[in-house]
Amino acid sequence: MQRIGFLLYPGFQVMSLAAVSVFEFANLENGSAAYDISFLSETGGSIISSIGLATETKAFDGEHVDTLLVTGAVGLASTSPGIQRYVGEALTHTRRLASICTGAFVLAEAGVLDGRRATTHWAVAREIQSRFPKIRMEEDRIFVVDGTVWSSAGMTAGVDLALAMVEEDLGADLARRVARMLVVYHRRAGGQSQFSALLDMHPKSDRIQTALSYARRNLKEPLSVEQLAEAAHLSPRQFSRAFRAETGQSPAKAVEILRLEAARLMMEDGRHPVDVVARETGFADRERMRRAFLRGFGQPPQAIRRNAQRDLNA
């Protein structure tokens, strides 16, 4: 049985503990306990989260675990020298040392991330990078694996990280069953972007949101302005004017962004040939998709796929 420890400290963010359910359901789906979960802190006893929820913990002094996951907090709050020392020493005796969200800051303070690839929540990635310039920060990743050190992006990305650990330990089939039980994707690839195109465009009205949702469901179609305007119940002229006012870009550019996001996910998934990805996402042919990838990501589709596979196999 593997021992999984979650390191808590005052002000930790409760969503960091969502990953606990991955290991809990792995035990259930496995039919026997593969994981023993413990909650650790410097002092032991009750540790209060940022929202006021108390969690009972054991003092980490003398505690050794196979996998140590450091929880995140709201913002970047320095931890005690004792926590930094424990995390730094954990690198030598744990099989995996991981951070969830801003837990990367704790790993950075302990010197664990020096010279390593890592990620964290996009909102604080550059600040951590500026404070700890030796980190090779990959701020647009869901999670990153560098040797025995794992790191994940914002809080829900800890679920993806934990599913990847279960897959490594118990196989892909069981990890898929756990994902189904938790009603989540199996699983977002580590190289997948943290950002959502629809969220980034943040349309203000229901009509423009409806048109964008229609576009995302029908990427294989030509998606002319007339089609999108009809979905929004506006004239083409009204639609184009309202669309640019709300999103800051033309309908054609927005559709390309949605196509790029979908194509990138399919490339990272690795199950479909490039020609199929291009056809299913509305680029028509691989050369047109390649040019769009170079404009959008600065890399061709094959490089995106190689990077995702490298993360999975690291």
Rank of each mutant, 00 (worst) to 15 (best):
L265I: 07
F23S: 04
A33D: 12
A104C: 06
A172Y: 05
A229K: 00
E127G: 09
V159S: 02
Y9E: 13
G44Y: 05
I4A: 05
M266H: 07
F6K: 03
F39T: 08
R176C: 13
R310V: 03
A229V: 00
I208D: 10
G171Y: 12
Y9L: 08
T67C: 13
F60Q: 09
K58C: 04
E280I: 07
I37H: 08
V274W: 08
R306L: 10
V277K: 02
R136N: 07
S240W: 01
E127V: 14
V184C: 13
S46M: 11
A77Q: 15
S78D: 15
L7R: 15
R116V: 00
A303I: 08
A153M: 06
Q192M: 14
D140S: 07
M15H: 05
H233G: 08
P133T: 00
A108F: 04
Q129Y: 01
R126Q: 15
S205Y: 10
G190Q: 03
E138L: 03
S240Q: 13
R310Q: 00
D311R: 13
E168K: 13
V14D: 14
A34I: 11
S80K: 06
S152N: 02
F60S: 11
P10A: 12
G75T: 12
R95Q: 08
D140R: 10
P203H: 10
R310D: 00
A90Y: 13
M266L: 14
S205V: 09
G82P: 06
R306W: 06
S46A: 10
T247K: 09
A232T: 11
T281H: 10
P133W: 05
L260G: 12
H186I: 07
E287C: 04
A245F: 04
R187F: 14
E168V: 05
D146W: 04
V124L: 04
L294F: 00
E230A: 15
A245S: 13
G62K: 08
G158Y: 03
T102H: 01
F60L: 15
C101G: 02
A254S: 15
E230C: 03
K58Q: 12
T43N: 07
V274L: 15
R207T: 09
D285E: 09
S50Y: 07
T92G: 15
E42M: 12
T120V: 04
R180N: 13
S49Y: 08
I257H: 04
D146L: 03
G5E: 11
F39K: 05
F6M: 05
A245L: 08
G147F: 09
I4Y: 05
S193L: 06
V20L: 09
T120Y: 03
K204I: 03
A33N: 08
G270T: 01
I304F: 01
F60W: 15
K204V: 01
E24M: 06
A245C: 01
L199V: 09
A104I: 11
I48K: 14
T55A: 12
A262M: 08
R244A: 10
E63G: 04
R207P: 06
L234D: 03
N313M: 13
T55Q: 09
D61H: 12
Y185W: 02
L228V: 02
S21N: 08
L107Y: 10
A232V: 10
D311M: 05
